[in-house]
Design a binder for these strands. Structure first.
Lengths: 150, 150
DNA sequence: CAGTATCCGGTGCGATACTG
DNA sequence: CAGTATCGCACCGGATACTG
């Protein structure tokens, strides 16, 4: 039998924590677009077709969570610009996006409209699980395991 | 035209599609608990500390999305029970959960309370990205092409 | 360009109570 | 055990208008 009740109970569960930060309708889409090269407020608003009144607090939340960072840029002679960039923590969301892409392409009809590629060779990218002993881990061989001590 | 839920669901971006199915505060936690061995309505309600009036439509949505399946069974002499199990499609959400665990453990304070292990050797599990040419793909070497309008 | 302010309707969610 | 019914509030998110 897999994990026990007491196991899953903990609010220190990293899934709970991650979902509470990222589990809404916009955050991961914003990350996707920033990763895809959109860095400015109005670019994001118009590409996502999201109201600016909604985008603003979303960006603030992601900055607050340490996923994005905001920088004002002023090129000589030009006006001020604000830029949103992924922090290192934000950059490490990439496997989550890749896993969502993998799943969506396989299990949701009509979702073939986005490609992930390796910058080195332009081949398509997929996600795998592996264990510390070097084995590939298929979905059915994963178990939720809780260290002793709650 | 602004984005409604309907237009999000008709998007061809697999991230958008996946997020529109899974991107709320409960769905992935329900999947985690079912994966962890909880299969009955009241078990899930009390463990997740979610109102039954909220759980009920959530489960229906996951069943509708083909992620869970519901089965009534009646052991001889016992009363009826309803069980929720992961479909094959639901099983394949595992890499998404694993990626969320990886990220949460590294970037969200106080989220060390859950671990993933390989059933074969009990070693910790992590996610990796690979390309079709067989290369390991680090986060910085992923290129994402976001088509306009999605 | 990068936001805020205001209004307002829809929905998420908890609490409580009731049903088969 | 497995739900449904109802209430009420908080928050999400769209439209529009305004600011530096």
């Amino acid at each position: 039998m897999p994990a026990t009740l007491a196991t899953l109970e903990s609010s220190r569960c990293p899934i709970t924590r991650s979902v509470s930060l990222l589990g809404d309708r916009w955050s991961l889409l914003i990350v996707r677009d920033v990763l895809g090269g959109l860095h400015r407020f109005d670019e994001l608003a118009s590409h996502l077709k999201i109201s600016r009144a909604v985008l603003s607090p979303r960006l603030a939340g992601l900055v607050d969570a340490g996923i994005l960072e905001r920088a004002d840029y002023r090129e000589p002679g030009a006006r001020r610009r604000a830029e949103y960039r992924l922090t290192e923590s934000g950059q490490e969301l990439v496997p989550i996006l890749a896993a969502l892409v993998d799943w969506g392409r396989r299990h949701v009809a009509g979702s073939a409209g986005l490609r992930l590629a390796h910058t080195g060779c332009l081949s398509p990218v997929h996600v795998e699980m592996g264990c510390a002993a070097g084995h590939a881990v298929p979905n059915a061989q994963l178990r939720i395991d809780v260290p002793p001590g709650h």
